[in-house]
């Protein structure tokens, strides 16, 4: 016989776990990464602004298109990549915040994982389409598209995780109302 007093999976009464060290460290690391990404984005936008008003140093990027147009395209391509990373890190920070609060299985986290895979998919799709144009040496040369299977595999993993989180959040809500 199970004594309900000992069998009390009363989620509403379980105190949240203390702010664990790994979660805290993750929070700090993600904060620093986000700051670095924002700083890099601001630097890139500064370069783009400077390019509008003066001569540009086309050697700064590894683009083989050494024209001012190619330079600007490379800047916006890099800025796009940074934006995707900022979105991903921003969502991860929110996710880690719920982890630190001791309640990661909330519907919002399933949504956050969805935003992450959508951002990564858009970024990868944009890279697949734009990179051949940026790396082309001879304008007449044939374009080669490089599909990175491992990135799409990673996106697939994220989609599955988002679904798992969604179900976890549903079960969590149900457990909360189980007496």
């Amino acid at each position: 016989m199970i004594n309900p007093a000992n069998d009390s999976f009363e989620s509403a009464d379980i105190p949240p776990p203390p702010d664990s060290r790994p979660a805290k460290a993750l929070g700090v690391i993600l904060f620093l990464v986000q700051m670095a990404l924002v700083a890099a984005l601001i630097f890139l936008l500064g370069l783009a602004l400077a390019a509008l008003f003066g001569p540009v140093d086309t050697e700064i990027f590894e683009t083989k298109e050494a024209s001012p147009g190619g330079y600007m395209a490379a800047i916006f391509y890099a800025a796009g990549n940074l934006l995707v990373m900022i979105v991903v890190v921003w969502q991860l920070r929110k996710l880690v915040a719920t982890l630190r609060a001791g309640d990661p299985f909330v519907p919002q986290n399933a949504l956050r994982l969805r935003y992450i895979w959508i951002a990564v998919a858009i970024g990868e799709l944009a890279r697949t389409i734009l990179q051949p144009f940026l790396e082309r040496v001879d304008p007449g040369a044939a374009l080669t598209i490089n599909v990175r299977a491992h990135v799409w595999f990673f996106i697939l993993v994220l989609i599955v995780l988002a679904q798992v989180f969604r179900e976890g959040a549903r079960l969590r809500a149900e457990a909360r109302l189980t007496v």
Partner: peptide, 27 residues
């Protein structure tokens, strides 16, 4: 008497509960 928190009993009493364990029902 049953060793269940007042909060959980309130959930049950107000009809908000989604499930009831047999052990709770027995108690």
């Amino acid at each position: 008497r049953v060793g269940i928190t007042l909060a959980n009993l309130s959930i049950l009493k107000t009809g908000k509960a989604k499930a009831v364990r047999f052990s709770t029902l027995e108690a």
